[in-house]
């Protein structure tokens, strides 16, 4: 990589001064060491401090800098800038209210996450030492516990766009299955009851956008399928 100019088209909206959102065309010169989209945003912000976005760890574990990049949701810190078609079009995550520029209001997303009781439920008195779990049982949690709550998946899901208040969405359902799959958790029936509803679980139509965009390579659709299977098995 060398020094190069990169062209952007960025969604801008400041409720304090803009009547409506607009797309801003802007370019920035990058150093050879600038690899990721977040590096470019940092350079842009140094030129114009009004450009607003969330960011923190810059290594793909905190989930702050999710945005819509050339039409696809992803994390700015894990996206290679040179693999993007220019002008690079940046928009806020779709389907959630925009607060400012690339910052969305995530209240609805977290409300759904909280609705599945995202914590271990085990009513036995805690033993003195750790609860035992075999390596195979522990392996069931792989691909589930690594979620970083970035919301790339839920905001790529048409079912979530249409019913963000009723459909739990892929991130919340992945978390629900994370606890169902945990041998230490005792609330499987209660968790299934919680999802037994025409909307909460069954609005998933296996479109699989969630799998396509997950920056951690997780598969919410598969987890949702397993919950549906358990519902069916329970009914017979």
């Amino acid at each position: 990589m060398s020094k190069r100019m990169v062209q952007f088209s960025i969604y801008r909206y400041d409720p304090d001064k803009d009547d409506a959102p607009y797309m801003q065309d802007i370019s920035v010169e990058l150093e050879p060491t600038d690899r990721k989209l977040l590096d470019a945003l940092t350079k842009l912000k140094a030129k114009d401090d009004t450009l607003s976005y969330r960011r923190s760890c810059r290594e793909g574990v905190c989930g702050s800098d999710a945005m819509n990049i050339n039409g696809k949701n992803g994390l700015a810190c894990l996206t290679d800038i040179d693999e993007l078609k220019q002008p690079i079009v940046l928009r806020p995550l779709p389907g959630l209210p925009v607060i400012r520029d690339l910052i969305v209001d995530m209240t609805q997303f977290f409300k759904q996450y909280h609705s599945i009781k995202p914590y271990l439920i085990n009513n036995d008195p805690p033993p003195e030492r750790e609860r035992l779990q075999s390596p195979d049982d522990r392996e069931e949690l792989n691909g589930l516990y690594e979620c970083i709550l970035c919301a790339c998946c839920s905001t790529a899901c048409p079912s979530f766009w249409w019913n963000p208040d009723k459909f739990v969405g892929p991130a919340g359902l992945l978390a629900a299955y994370r606890f169902i799959a945990d041998t230490r958790d005792q609330a499987t029936n209660e968790r299934l009851d919680n999802l037994e509803d025409p909307y909460r679980l069954f609005r998933c139509h296996t479109i699989m956008n969630c799998v396509d965009v997950c920056p951690k390579g997780l598969n919410p659709t598969k987890a949702i399928g397993k919950i549906k299977d358990m519902m069916v098995a329970r009914a017979v």
Binding site: Y119, L120, N122, P126, E128, R129, E130, R131, L132, Q133, S134, P135, D137, R138, L141, Y145, F179, D182, R184, D185
Partner: peptide
């Protein structure tokens, strides 16, 4: 550390199921 395990932290396990 044991408290964390009770909170649900997904520690890796030894063959006999310990942390």
């Amino acid at each position: 550390v044991v408290e964390l395990e009770h909170y649900g932290m997904p520690f890796d396990r030894t063959d006999d199921g310990k942390i």
